[in-house]
Design a binder for these strands. Structure first.
Lengths: 119, 119
DNA sequence: GTAACCTACAACCAAATGGTTGTAGATCAT
DNA sequence: ATGATCTACAACCATTTGGTTGTAGGTTAC
């Protein structure tokens, strides 16, 4: 179920969704506990519709999910979405570390040494 | 030391910069080794100026840095920028874990609650 | 039933984004 | 010196984004 084969568009949506301070705040809050959309809207100096749009952006990015309860819609954090972003950055980091190790290897090389130190 | 007091605008720039597949590819490539701007431009089906803009976005987000060498400008990955993003997500993750632990505590409690669901 | 509330969605607007072409300043090769 | 290359930047254009107001439908309270 954690098979998340994220395509480019999905990654775009993830980072794009996090590139707004209001949306990051929403993520932080709904991760700590459920909020109705209007409950969220009351927190920010903007219209209900604006907050609704922010929630929609987060939902399409799989960072939050909504659950209908009576007349209101409860927004909750989606941990898998966040983990996806972290894993993506881990990959970038791995590439960098690989490069750093290669450089370290070159610097550590000695003329009489014929082998690499690590994998 | 890498004391990097990131404000909201800085975080915006970081995530915004990563929300484009061309820019993510540039980050990946220049992290593995230096590229001139025109060297990068040759890789993508868009104008030199477009790639130049992408590099500028990445530079303002502190994800890459440029170093002038002769008539060309060498673009290299900035590891600190990536680490910043990762650290941000670690914070979100910590918040989530905190919540998960609270839920675990609640579930482990004696059933003396009177039916109220605690979010 | 009626009023109040929560949500969804359309239409609109200003600003930002991602792309283009064109111009101009440095630097390198001949 | 001339021409080719590399870069920077301005001006422009289409689309997206982040916000607004307004309308309409479903749910709850009285």
């Amino acid at each position: 179920m954690v098979v998340d084969h994220l395509d480019d568009a999905g990654i775009d949506r993830l980072f794009q969704a996090l590139a707004d301070p209001t949306r990051r705040d929403i993520v932080r809050r709904v991760t700590l506990g459920g909020y109705s959309v209007s409950g969220l809207a009351a927190l920010y100096a903007m219209s209900f519709a604006a907050v609704q749009k922010h929630v929609a952006v987060l939902e399409r990015a799989s960072l939050v999910s909504k659950e209908k309860r009576g007349r209101e819609q409860i927004v909750r954090g989606n941990h898998d979405g966040l983990q996806n972003v972290r894993r993506l950055l881990d990959e970038y980091e791995a590439i960098w570390r690989q490069r750093a190790e290669r450089i370290a290897d070159i610097l550590a090389e000695e003329p009489k040494n014929n082998g690499r130190i690590q994998q």
